[in-house]
């Protein structure tokens, strides 16, 4: 060390020691921050999710998270299931099934439009729409949240399954503004066609995967 200091060159050992010390200190800091905030963060995430689900399913008081796989449905336990579709079953105050909510997403004008839709198993229809995240142009694309005529599409959007219960009888389709003829069509917002189409595609892609797996297992969900 003394020789090194004389020619003003730091030994590798000193460098490694310093970096190691700093890294250890920082590691400790990060771990304690993670542990300290973990419970608050998970609680926050759960509250945000519940709020979103309760908004699309009016009258719901509690919810449970499930995963639908080809084998059936099971309560979601962590991140274990690989190719399952996550969904949320919402229950009323007395424990009756109020509806099912699931997420979907498709590319809009600016970025992926992530939506949350409510499915009513009794009417086999989509009965509500919420947006989880989007970066669409303010004043144009974000009309999907405010345009009453557009939201009216989701009062009862038909998503009946076909005869084999393998796919939707009629795929959800977005049509030009003012030309909705069938209950499974979504009337696009004039001037925000791209975003409207993203909503329709998001619902269709998600429902095509989820609903056939859900149909045989509905009774399991009804009893809380």
């Amino acid at each position: 060390m003394t020789g090194a200091a004389a020619v003003n060159v730091t030994s590798s050992r000193a460098m490694v020691a310093t970096l190691g010390l700093v890294a250890t200190l920082c590691g400790v800091l990060i771990v304690s921050a993670y542990q300290g905030t973990l419970s608050a963060v998970t609680a926050n995430k759960r509250i945000a999710l519940e709020r979103a689900v309760f908004k699309v399913i009016p009258g719901a008081a509690s919810m449970k998270e499930f995963v639908a796989t080809t084998a059936g449905i099971e309560p979601a336990a962590g991140q274990s299931s690989g190719n399952g579709v996550k969904f949320y079953a919402a229950y009323g105050p007395s424990g009756e099934l109020k509806g099912i909510a699931a997420e979907g997403g498709a590319t809009g004008y600016a970025d992926v439009v992530r939506i949350l839709y409510a499915y009513d198993p009794d009417r086999q229809a989509i009965t509500g729409l919420g947006v989880v995240g989007m970066r669409e142009t303010p004043g144009i694309g974000d009309k999907i949240l405010t345009d009453q005529a557009f939201l009216a599409n989701f009062a009862a959007l038909d998503v009946r399954l076909d005869a084999d219960a393998k796919a939707l009888a009629n795929p959800v389709k977005v049509v030009k503004h003012g030309s909705k003829r069938n209950p499974w069509e979504i009337d696009a917002i004039s001037g925000a066609t791209v975003t409207s189409k993203a909503v329709g595609k998001g619902i269709n892609d998600s429902a095509q995967r989820l609903l056939p797996r859900l149909a045989p297992n509905l009774d399991k969900l009804r009893s809380k």
């Binding site: 970096l19 700093v22 921050a33 926050n44 945000a48």
Partner: peptide
Amino acid sequence: ATYIVIIATFVTVVDYLIQAISLA
């Protein structure tokens, strides 16, 4: 290198703190 490690640490800490305070 040392400064970057230190800064990155506090950024991570602040990231968790904000998540805990407000997800919005």
